[in-house]
């Protein structure tokens, strides 16, 4: 088990390094200049700034500088999006609200998604299944920008139940949480629907399998067979779905951030990419990549926990 984990970590680290290298070169091969200084600025000033950031030197030398800094865990300074602020601080100051939002929406997604999924699988092909399938698909099929805008218009503007945008408070207070409800819901619908759908499909398949018959035969109640055997087996693919859901939500809430005025990481990332703030873009991409790899390892491990047939560290092929 330990050996397997170490193997995975080493593999993940290699991937990480390659990603960093690839992203560096992709970014620096992008058209457009890093310094979009106003043409009014004198050439001497321009040279000065170029020299400071080694922009005059060949790409490979710049790469050397960047890697040297990264080895010292120095991720550089943001150039344009937050001038003078260390990249890691930029990421950290944007992170709390992004994580809070995702965290809360995950709390909403998991139970609801699972309950719906189980119910739909159990009542497969009944009217309940059809109706809830339709609702679920409706929820995923309305793009989040439409759903979010609709919610904001109806719940926030017309009915005035919720504040239109995220309350500006430095810490997570009740008022702030209250204003987070709409973005949380907007984020959750898609997740609930996709979990419910995956679970329904998996479970419907598991329920037709022979061992379910056996379980019934050995005298387990319906509830027991459902929870012990069916759910357990359906969770195998779901474990990774859920973990990736975290990651997916973490990176794709840009639309919702825009509509509800949430100061999240995606907004910064867009600004960094569009503004050619390469150091910051690198920092954010590295961060996402790190989380992604971490989640992947977790997902792998969780397979072993939820699926009795998978054991870690065994021979791969046999």
């Amino acid at each position: 088990m330990l050996k397997y984990i170490i193997q995975r970590i080493i593999a993940a680290f290699c991937t990480f390094v390659v990603v960093v290298v690839v992203v560096f070169f992709v970014l620096h091969f992008m058209p457009g200049e890093i310094l979009d200084l106003s043409p009014k600025i004198d050439r001497s000033v321009r040279e000065l700034i170029m020299a400071k950031y080694h922009l005059n030197e060949p790409l490979i030398v710049q790469f050397g500088y960047t890697m040297r800094d990264y080895l010292r865990l120095d991720f550089g300074y943001s150039l344009k999006v937050r001038p003078g602020v260390p990249v890691m601080n930029v990421v950290l100051e944007r992170l709390p609200v992004t994580i809070q939002l995702n965290y809360f929406s995950a709390i909403v997604i998991l139970p609801f998604g699972m309950i719906f999924g189980i119910l739909m699988a159990v009542k497969k092909d009944t009217i309940f299944d059809h109706i809830s399938s339709t609702i679920v698909i409706l929820l995923i099929s309305v793009p989040s920008f439409v759903l979010a805008a609709l919610m904001q218009y109806i719940l926030g503007f017309k009915l005035e139940w919720f504040p239109l945008i995220l309350e500006a408070e430095p810490h997570l207070t009740w008022t702030k949480f209250y204003s987070m409800i709409m973005p949380i819901l907007a984020l959750s619908f898609g997740g609930i629907a996709s979990i419910a759908r995956t679970l329904r499909a998996e479970m419907a398949e598991v329920l037709t399998m022979d061992f379910m018959m056996l379980a019934k035969a050995k005298g387990l109640t319906y509830r027991q067979t459902l929870l012990r055997h069916a759910l357990r087996n359906s969770c195998v693919p779901l474990a990774s779905t859920f973990l990736y859901l975290f990651l997916g939500v973490l990176s794709s809430s840009l639309v919702i951030e825009q509509i509800f005025g949430v100061p999240g990481l995606s907004k910064t990332m867009m600004a960094a990419i569009n503004g050619h703030d390469h150091w910051l873009t690198m920092g954010i991409v590295i961060f996402y990549c790190f989380i992604g790899l971490f989640m992947a390892i977790l997902a792998d491990l969780s397979y072993g926990v939820v699926d009795p047939r998978i054991r870690m560290g065994g021979k791969k092929d046999e």
Partner: peptide
């Protein structure tokens, strides 16, 4: 993670 960022 939340706590780190949120600063208590």
């Amino acid at each position: 993670l939340t706590a780190c960022g949120g600063g208590g």
